[in-house]
Design a protein around this nucleic acid. Structure first.
Lengths: 152, 152
DNA sequence: GCCAATCCCCACTAAATAGATAGAGATTAT
DNA sequence: ATAATCTCTATCTATTTAGTGGGGATTGGC
């Protein structure tokens, strides 16, 4: 199960990305819409800003906007930001590799071999699908050009 | 990342399943071989017994044996036993479904839709591959008949 | 019958993580 | 000025993880 924090992050990002270009969304409004504790959400949005995903404006007409286009932000990237490595074993993480202390031989480790298969399968999805894909309501992830939302 | 507990469970199961039929393996021996804290491992083996995966004999010649054949025990089953539902969201778990409290419509939830894709991919692997497959060192999971170990 | 080895059961603890809550400071439009 | 917003730091509580520890029950060998 993913954490509430990560789920809140996705809810917020999808709301911000769905906003018309140039128009900012406040943390209070996002919190209200999705019943997210406001101060908790502020921390999350701040993390997303520090990670270079969001930009923000302060003051009366402030709020958050996407810094990068929604179709360049993958689900895997956001998940890693809030949950740490996605790999089921430290010895399978490319980004945060650590050897299992009790492992005699990675090449012969049955656990590693089987989990690598599961991890590869889910990573392929998570690192491929983007916020843009999700908003486009496009089950097979084809190129949608400039379109953002396809009517149902 | 999976828990130590789950990892220990896999190490123990693979050791027990690799044993010749009818010969039992003691918790002390498994703990020694794989540097697992003994008392912690005992709890794990007991859980596996209660789940109907292992059987045990007490007393001087005691130890643990597989209750079910290794090729009927999937990685997903063991993982669920120690980690709870594998689904990334409660609303995606078949076995332990719970509605997301803040969700207005599951059918229209972008987060649910995307995570379903990732979950399907990894579940397909975890619920298909068995301890037997892993021990057979058989990367593509074909039928190995009665063979348990294929020489390298 | 006794002993030692083993599994079985239950209680407890220490550290880390999740999920917030709180308060004050910085910036900006009006 | 002021009110609304983002920004930063600290703190708190509950849960989970990863064990540890002390016995009790069962069994085989003597």
């Amino acid at each position: 199960m993913i954490s509430n924090k990560a789920k809140y992050a996705f809810r917020a990002l999808l709301a911000i990305a769905a906003e018309p270009e140039g128009s900012a969304l406040t943390s209070a409004e996002i919190a209200r819409r999705h019943a997210i504790p406001h101060k908790f959400l502020e921390q999350i949005l701040l993390d997303l800003k520090k990670a270079g995903v969001l930009d923000s404006r302060r003051g009366k007409t402030g709020g958050y906007v996407m810094l990068r286009p929604a179709d360049t932000v993958s689900f895997g990237e956001i998940l890693r930001l809030f949950e740490g490595p996605l790999a089921p074993l430290p010895c399978l993480s490319r980004n945060a590799y650590r050897r299992c202390e009790d492992c005699e031989s990675e090449a012969n480790c049955e656990i590693r071999r089987e989990f690598a298969r599961a991890y590869d399968a889910s990573r392929l999805v998570l690192d491929t699908r983007t916020l843009g894909d999700a908003l486009a309501n496009n089950p097979y992830g084809g190129d949608m050009g400039h379109e953002v939302r396809k009517a149902g």
